[in-house]
């Protein structure tokens, strides 16, 4: 079937099997491999993307269900290599990543949090990220990054 949607502000149209999951459509059909798959039970959050501005786990969403809607992935965050999204900059500045595998999902989930709650507390960040597993960092620098990213987003950086 044909699936047409907006991906990172560009119109795309893909022929795919109706059973295709959004994560697989992005990775296999569109070669957008920034979205990662770390589990098969919707627990790890490495696959989080934005659907109409809200974070969703793309591994549990049928690609067909995004027809006509807006999807944003980690590849769509930065305006350019030199102009990162403030949350990307915050993760870099605060050592919020080690191996980088959970990072795309962490970024997408964190931006959604700050969009909803521009000034989250440390506890609110930890609660929000409960659906994203990181095995490397112990979360401390991720939390620090999100708080810094939130401040930068508030300042409009």
């Amino acid at each position: 079937m044909k699936i047409s949607f907006t991906l990172n502000e560009k119109a795309v149209s893909v022929d795919a099997d109706p059973a295709t999951l959004l994560a697989d459509l992005l990775r296999e059909n569109l070669n957008m491999t920034g979205t990662h798959v770390g589990c098969d039970t919707s627990q790890c959050g490495a696959c989080v993307v934005h659907l109409n501005g809200e974070s969703v786990k793309s591994c549990t969403l049928l690609a067909a269900s995004v027809d006509g809607q807006e999807v944003k992935t980690v590849e769509g965050l930065a305006k350019s290599k030199d102009e990162l999204h403030p949350m990307q900059t915050a993760f870099r500045d605060n050592h919020g990543l080690q191996c980088g595998f959970c990072t795309p999902g962490m970024l997408m989930a964190s931006i959604d949090l700050v969009n909803k709650n521009p000034e989250p507390t440390e506890g609110e960040v930890r609660d929000w990220l409960e659906g994203n597993i990181c095995r490397c960092t112990g979360y401390q620098n991720i939390v620090k990054s999100v708080l810094a990213g939130a401040a930068a987003m508030r300042d409009g950086n």
Binding site: R27, M32, T33, G34, T35, H36, V37, T73, V74, E75, L77, A78, K81, L84, Q88, F91, R92, D93, H95, L97, G100, F101, T103, P104, L107
Partner: peptide
């Protein structure tokens, strides 16, 4: 800042599955 981070925060890391 870590040299490796730019590719990871922009989704441009290249893992085997990619």
């Amino acid at each position: 800042k870590r040299k490796e981070d730019l590719r990871f925060v922009t989704g441009k890391g290249q893992y085997v599955a990619d």
